[in-house]
Design a protein around this nucleic acid. Structure first.
Lengths: 344, 344
DNA sequence: ACATGACCGTCAAACGTTTGATATAAAAAG
DNA sequence: CTTTTTATATCAAACGTTTGACGGTCATGT
């Protein structure tokens, strides 16, 4: 605990202040303000209370309320960061839907320090009623321990771990397969795939779909796995794939959006024009795609729905519901732009 | 208030549980765990307490602590969203520095609903000790009211309003001027500027610097103001500027990073090659710039330092310090990439 | 006139932590 | 052998809200 002085400024009005102003007991104020079914109050008293609360600008203290109720009406969201537009879209969706349900949101990223510690603190200190965890970098062991302690308070986003029985995932595998099929349909017989680290669950699922589609379409595939999954990783990965001598791929599948951007840059750096000499398709869509040179073809997944479902599941569990594993059913969809074309 | 059941699961251990396990009074546990100067405890008792706390996985309940202390060791950050890399960089910086200082962070964006309401709630419900406000879309009137209520609890980021006496701003004006001078130095005599809405304080500052530099360098300037400041706004703005008949500009200054990306796209759409036929420079830097086609020249501002200074100011005020208006002193810097060149 | 409700409202305990005041015993000082 | 000091630990109140248990006051039906 860090020492430090209290914030200064005028005291916030309390229930007691409102009660005094309205000439009634605090309990009645509390009931009236919350529309408690037991909030009998004559129309006259009622409006006096409401007026007093309004005049003082009263808002219930969340600490007191949280202490009394043992719940916070607040959800936590842990993200690795905002490195990919996928995460910003997810954050937006979760915040929006939580607000709609009357819940607040506290977001945390890896910038705050050890993510496992962040989650544990939020849960064990009673900061949040449940945690939505969208970080792939937390060791399974830590998650198991967490799930043991708070099985009804942790929801995994786009990740599955044996021990955690609540999760919401997208059809990453199908999306990767769709991308490969799209390229195959365009006549590409030799494609390259750049992926992030296989330690990430999303990556193994994307790799699965990719492999399956490669087999079923009968194309040849070159695959590169990178330590990261950002612009630079895509750039380097594609350079490696293309440098591969005699018979380079005519199309690239990038497993993340930033990697797709990096792939475009790599092509340019190697003097290849897209899509004439190299087609590029990336997983996850974003506005940015339409403004790249050339506009990037992507396969879109329902990220917004992922956030909505995660919030729903968390609230359901808070209400006593059982943990579930949800797959967001919407199909992946190719958003065709100018970075893919039929093989010449 | 939304009704709802409590989260289920095993009860969190309390101070009383630890005290019972260690065979001492709660107050002693509290003092020992916090290294309270009054926490006399024999070495033996002390280790017993520590062991018990560890074994039970005890963490102090923030609601109880917040209630008792009337402070939360938590800061709030309000952003318009994560539409620009500038905001994600800022969020990261703030979270990082807050964590370093032992403070938690709760982030909110416009996705949660009316931003003014969001701020008021966070402050008045005692969710946070202070708010860092980086949204330009809140009316001055609302801010004045806020500043009256909680003058020591609100810090404006990259925005100045008469009524709010605590703010941290970057040298936006100098940055815009630097961009114009960079173009002028390359020999451009006719430049176009695309800006976001003049209702935003940052935009008027950038416009000022731009205008001043235009005068002092003696170049001709065409200016477009857009309703938004995203990719599409940059795209449309630049199209308007270039469509302007006989004598189009040979260089573009984009007032935001996304607008710079849009500018690149617009040039391509109109069949102009960058930088041969049109130079483009944008305000604020990001990794993405290096992976665009062509790599985008930018002028970088110390966004990270903006975040650091803002949390420092907030904490200083919480400690009784007076509100201040800080200008982050670091100079803007041109990051030269391939989207600018000497006029042919 | 008297029980019976229906209304309108108050009481007081509890949530978990912190902290100034206080208690007890042993050691040091006079 | 008192008195003071020091070391160790406890007591109890307070933070602001919620909520089950009561307490009056009227009108109403019998």
């Amino acid at each position: 605990m860090i020492k430090g002085p209290k914030p200064t400024g005028p005291r916030r009005p309390t229930l007691a202040d409102v009660a005094a102003a309205a000439g009634v007991h605090t309990s009645l104020v509390s009931r009236v303000l919350r529309d408690d079914p037991r909030g009998f109050a004559s129309a006259e008293t009622r409006s006096r209370i409401l007026a007093a609360a309004e005049a003082l600008g009263y808002r219930a203290n969340v600490a007191a309320r949280g202490l009394r109720n043992a719940r916070t009406t607040t959800l936590g969201l842990l993200l690795p960061g905002f490195t990919s537009p996928m995460y910003t879209a997810l954050a937006k969706s979760v915040e929006e839907h939580a607000a709609l349900k009357g819940y607040g949101l506290v977001m945390g990223t890896h910038a705050a320090g050890d993510p496992h510690e962040t989650i544990t603190n939020m849960l064990m200190q009673g900061r949040v009623d449940a945690m939505l965890v969208a970080s792939g970098r937390i060791e399974d062991k830590a998650l198991r321990q967490l799930a043991e302690w708070a099985p009804h308070r942790v929801v995994l986003l786009n990740r599955q771990v044996m021990a955690v029985r609540a999760s919401v995932v997208l059809r990453d595998s199908d999306a990767a397969a769709l991308a490969v099929r799209h390229l195959a349909d365009l006549g590409h017989r030799r494609i390259g795939g750049v992926f992030g680290p296989p330690s990430l669950d999303t990556m193994v699922r994307r790799l699965q779909g990719y492999r399956a589609a490669v087999r079923s379409t009968g194309v040849e595939a070159l695959t590169a796995s990178c330590k990261e999954r950002d612009y630079a990783a895509g750039f380097n990965g594609v350079q490696r794939l293309l440098a591969d001598g005699a018979n380079p791929p005519t199309a690239i599948f990038a497993a993340t959006f930033p990697m797709g951007v990096g792939a475009l840059a790599a092509a340019r750096a190697m003097g290849l024009t897209v899509p004439e000499q190299l087609s590029v398709i990336a997983l996850h869509d974003d506005d940015l795609a339409g403004f790249l040179t050339p506009p990037l073809t992507t396969v879109a997944l329902p990220v917004k729905e992922l956030g909505v479902q995660a919030v729903e599941l968390a609230l359901d569990m808070a209400a006593g519901g059982e943990p579930r594993r949800i797959v967001v059913p919407q199909s992946p969809e190719v958003i065709e732009r100018a970075s893919t074309s039929a093989v010449r």
